[in-house]
């Protein structure tokens, strides 16, 4: 209890902690919601690729002295999504290999660019692993803007998203632009990565996309509940992670991901319907062990 009071005192005193908490919560919601679609469309690896592909875009934006690195990041993110599709459609290279190639290629280009800029203010560590304590007011507004836009789009296009994710063939049959939906999702993924840069960084953003959504997936049988639960787990992970990192003086992004992973582990073993431990107990009690 002592620690919690200490943390609350710190929050009310230091604006950087307030910013960190708000940014974390927003990223939790944003990643949680977008992540559900990534999981259900079987695109976890794609999410990983796009989050890495954002790096060169971010670095270019820094080099050009632009304060908002969204445009660069979205450009390289979207380009690599197109590139992955182009490679797998125009050669016998399968999707996962194409993703592997582009993921590492774009990431390496980004690293080469950063290291060529030694002596400038670009801190590769912060881009890769986040620096939640340096979230500015502008960053907060931008993250809030992206979150609201993405949530509105999901509410507005819920039925199109549901159908094209569940049954892409029928979606195509009734004339939904399934390819356009796919590429819009890729662009949203790049936006989400940029919004999460400060909080968890490029390397761990995929955890925020996949883990809360996967936890929710184990607990419900309806998409809209999965979306709400996933956002909830995202927020809980972010807030608890920021708390732990402040109290124990450890890396924030990593703490957030550790909390999210613990939540997943609990759901994996104890989910009422899917839980491994629950099923095991049931089998023991019915004598079929």
């Amino acid at each position: 209890m002592e620690e919690i009071r200490f943390f609350f005192d710190a929050v009310s005193t230091y604006p950087f902690l307030q910013h960190a908490l708000i940014a974390g919560a927003l990223v939790g919601i944003l990643c949680g919601v977008v992540g559900c679609f990534i999981i259900l469309r079987g695109m976890a690896l794609m999410g990983e690729a796009i989050s890495h592909a954002v790096l060169p875009g971010v670095v270019i934006s820094y080099m050009l002295g632009s304060s908002s690195f969204f445009i660069g990041a979205v450009a390289t993110g979207a380009l690599s999504a197109l590139g992955i599709g182009y490679i797998s459609q125009n050669s016998k290279i399968k999707d996962d290999s194409a993703i592997g190639i582009l993921l590492t290629a774009t990431f390496a280009i980004g690293i080469v660019m950063v290291t060529s800029l030694s002596g400038t203010s670009v801190d590769i560590w912060h881009i890769l692993f986040g620096n939640v304590l340096a979230v500015s007011r502008t960053d907060l507004w931008v993250t809030l803007g992206i979150t609201i836009a993405v949530l509105l789009a999901i509410i507005l296009f819920y039925k199109q998203l549901l159908l094209s994710t569940f049954d892409p063939t029928m979606a195509k049959a009734i004339g939904l632009p399934t390819k356009v939906i796919h590429y819009i999702l890729m662009i949203v993924l790049s936006l989400v990565t940029v919004a999460s840069l400060n909080t968890v960084g490029i390397i761990l953003v995929v955890a925020m996309l996949i883990t809360p959504g996967a936890t929710a997936y184990l607990l419900t049988e309806r998409l809209h509940i999965m979306l709400v639960l996933s956002a909830f787990f995202g927020v809980v992970s972010a807030v608890t992670g920021v708390y732990l990192s402040y109290i124990y003086d450890v890396a924030t992004g990593a703490s957030i991901v550790v909390v999210a992973s613990i939540l997943f582990t609990l759901a994996f073993f104890f989910s009422p319907k899917q839980g491994v431990a629950i099923r095991w107990c049931r089998r023991l009690s019915t004598g079929k062990a």
Binding site: T165, F166, I174, R222, L223
Partner: peptide, 15 residues
Amino acid sequence: FPVLVEDVVVMGSYP
């Protein structure tokens, strides 16, 4: 997929 039987049938009304 997290979808109930009735949710699937309702999709028929989407067009």
